[in-house]
Structures are given as C-alpha cells and as structure tokens.
Design a protein around this nucleic acid. Structure first.
Lengths: 243, 243
DNA sequence: CCAAAAGTGTTATATTTACACCCATGC
DNA sequence: GCATGGGTGTAAATATAACACTTTTGG
C-alpha cells in the first residue's frame, strides 16, 4: 500500500509528464466515402500547407478541449459537407513523429459513409476546394493521408462484408442490382446475381417497398430499403453478412 | 488557388490551434492478456492516483515526444513484464473529456497477448503492485479502464476467430486439447473435439512435432507448434479461422 | 485395474456455387 | 421490334454438426 507521500510524489510525476507532453497536439482526419456513378469516391480538399500545396488532403482538424474525438470528427464532417446523417467510425491513431510539418500531431482517423445526392453536390459547389475523387484514381495525398486513406479503405471493405453498412452509401430506396453493383465496386470482384438476391432477401433485413424505379428505359426494378429494426433484432442472435 | 498571404494566414491559424491544444496529453493503456490455469487473465496494477486508490488500473503511460504510440505501448509492456516477444495490437482511442482527474488525457488502448511462464511469474514477484486477475472476476477498474478492458476483450475475441493469434497465449509447444481449451475459455462456448481437431489440422498451419507430453498421468498427447511461415503463405490466398 | 485424457470416422444437414432463359419497359 | 436490365430455380459440391468407443499412460 503506498503511503500518502508516495502518492503525492506519483501525482507530481504525472503532472510533470502531462505538462511535458503538452507539445503534442491531437487531430482527427476523416476519410469520407461516397458512391456515385458506379464509383467509390473520397472527399478531399486542396491542401494549403507547405510543402503540400500541390496535393489534396483529407478533411480534418485539431481536437478542441471541450469535445471528444467522435464529436470533433462529426464537427469536421458537418462543417464541410452540410450533412448530419452520416455513418462515422473510428479506425485508428497515426503517430509517426514527423508526420506533420508544424510539430507533433497525433491524428485519429475516421471513415465516414455518406449518400451523395443532388442537394449535397449543390452544397459542395460553394466550396471550390473540395472534390470527390475516385478511390482508384488516388495515388498520393498530403502528409501521411494516403496511407490513412488506404487503411480506412481496407477496414471499410472488411466491415462491409460483416455488417450492413453499405446502405449508408445508397439512396434510401434502391434496387437489388444497385446494391449488388455497390458491393462489386467496393469489394472489387463480381457477384452472382441470383445468389446475391437470394442471400440478401433471406437475410430479412430488407424491406420490399410498394414502389418501382421510374423513367428507366427497361423493365423497372422493385425498390427496397434497409430495415434497421429487423437488423437490430437479428444482430443479437449473431449475424454475418458473409459475401 | 489560395494566395501566399492566405496560406500564411492558414498556417498561423494552425499553429495557434496546435498551441491551444497543448493542454491535451496523450497516453497509451495496455490490456495485457495471459492464459494460465485454464483462465484468461489481465495484468493490472494497484492504482496510486486519487480518487482510485482502492482500484486496479491497466498498465499505461504518457506518450513521449520522441516515440510513436506503438513504441510507447511496447515500452510500457517491456518495462512492466520484462518481455519483448509480445503480440501487440492497437484497438482504439478513448477521449471522454473528464476521463482523467488530472486534466485532458486522450488515451490509445492496445491489447497484448503474452505467454505466462515461470520466468515471467518470477519477474512479477519483484513488483508487488502487479497482479494477474481473471477477466471474469473483474467488475471495475480505475478511470475508464474497465470499459477499455471490455472493448479490448471483445476485439480480441473477435480476432481470435479470424486470425491465428491464440498461439501467442500458449507455450511454443502445445497439445491440440490445450488449444481447444483455450478457445473454449476465450470464446465462452464448448467445441466438439473431433471437429476441432480435424479443422485445425486441415488448416495446415500447425507443425506436428516429434514430441509428446511428459509426466502426465494418462496417455501423453502429441505436441504441435504454430507454423508461422505456412500461415503467411496461406494468408495471401484469403484465410479465415472460422470457429 | 482404474482413472484420465488421447485419438479416431461416419452420416445427416445446411450452405455454397455454378449456371441460362423469359419478362417488362422505353424508345 | 429491339435494347436493356429485371427477375427466377435447380443440381452438384462442399462444409458443418452431431455423435461413442478404443487406446495409452501413470499410479
């Protein structure tokens, strides 16, 4: 059992160490994925910090004293995209000592999934520094953001197979082939149409709507929506997407 | 395209924000799992910081200016356990604003898997503040460490089913029933002996040794070891433990 | 000879895969 | 009427799950 003075000594050591570490800043960076034109895209911003003026960077910011990491990530997302209905998931911290040119900045990466729609695109028009770039087209980003993007992409791909998060990239109402195409694009391999449909329908987490596609120049597809309530019920019994 | 002065302005804003955020410290906390006496245990330390003097805490420390998070976690682990051969995996950051009584401390949690052996236990004797406690027996820890432990436990359980990490908790040489028992204890449900053996052997990641158990009062079991090289080869072709 | 764990195969069931044609709509 | 994607079923192969007895060793 430590005596009182040992305790006081330990606390002093801690206070000293915490003060010493006050030269480390903490930030969040968001890898914001969207799906548009059968392509997986990332929202990036022109970088205004040397030596990366010619590069794009992820959207991020320093974490404020009065907010958690989740709150900071959501703040960045809302500020830049105007969205509040986003799927946001912490991935991991990046801490290479010289990853930031202005000093020690440890960053915590998140990935976000958002539905790209016309309202959103209109909102973006007002910020000419922001751009949706196809994931496949990216080969470098400012700082260590390319590595961060890549790791978040892998995590997202993995989780896509295990949890029903893909719906966050699609409109509320979608056809089964839209969904299949999304999986094919994100996972990077083709899926059998009949097997895919059977599997998804039998999972029981899709709600079949009394609605069909309109203004398509072929037989219109049935529309579905994700049944969150049904998923929550099934999740408890151990559940796997398994594609 | 931002002009030079806009860039300078932006950089100044960043520098200011980084300085403002210098009131946040970053720490690592390690959830160190060991397997002993058919029980999953966590290594904890008597807490010397009010108001948690009656509690145990995880092993952690402030991250130094010249080390990454991984390095800090490894440093903590080596300092406390004397081990260098450890499996260490980042889990996630915890950032509740008042999680630490001495100020804002954002912590990054790791879990570690180590082989508890006699040399290790002897090393521990010298630090009477350290203890191996059965995971099942824990109901509270200092700070938010119980929540951290719980989340790390869930992540470890999950990864145990997908990657061959369980071997890090066993001696180099083990019998199939030792391995099965480990899985049963960690996952929390019984496994069929014959199916388990068939599955593991057919995975092709175990090396059968020319050695058997000694000094057991029953028929001695064949010993195996984990074949890291074989695993690395198979992993590429997409691999799943699948228990 | 007894206790204790080692070791071993088969069958039924469920899951996964592969595969091809007719249907409804807009132009 | 034609181009386009919508929608449907079956059979073979594979994986999983359930289950009981004989063997070997130490004491």
């Amino acid at each position: 059992m430590p005596t009182g003075s040992v305790i006081a000594q330990n606390i002093n050591r801690w206070i000293t160490e915490i003060h010493n570490s006050y030269k480390t800043a903490v930030s969040v960076d968001c890898v914001i994925f969207g799906y548009d034109e059968d392509t997986l895209k990332v929202l990036v911003s022109k970088c205004d910090m040397p030596p990366f003026e010619r590069e794009y960077s992820l959207l991020g910011d320093i974490v404020h004293a009065d907010e958690t990491l989740d709150e900071a990530a959501l703040r960045v997302l809302v500020a830049k995209t105007g969205f509040t209905d986003v799927f946001l998931e912490q991935v991991q911290a990046f801490s290479a000592i010289n990853r930031h040119p202005l000093g020690r900045v440890i960053t915590v990466a998140y990935y976000a999934l958002i539905k790209i729609d016309d309202a959103h695109l209109a909102h973006l028009e007002q910020d000419s520094d922001l751009q949706w770039l196809p994931v496949e087209a990216l080969s470098s980003l400012a700082f260590d953001h390319f590595e961060i993007m890549h790791i978040c992409l892998e995590k997202m791909r993995f989780e896509m197979r295990v949890r029903p998060i893909g719906f966050n990239l699609l409109p509320q109402k979608f056809s089964l082939l839209q969904l299949q195409k999304l999986y094919e694009v994100v996972l990077g391999f083709p899926l059998d149409k009949r097997n895919f449909r059977r599997k998804l329908v039998r999972l029981g987490i899709l709600e079949q709507l009394d609605e069909i596609e309109s203004s398509v120049s072929h037989r219109p597809a049935r529309l579905y929506s994700f049944d969150e309530a049904a998923y929550q019920q099934k999740k408890i019994a151990g559940f796997n997407f398994d594609l």
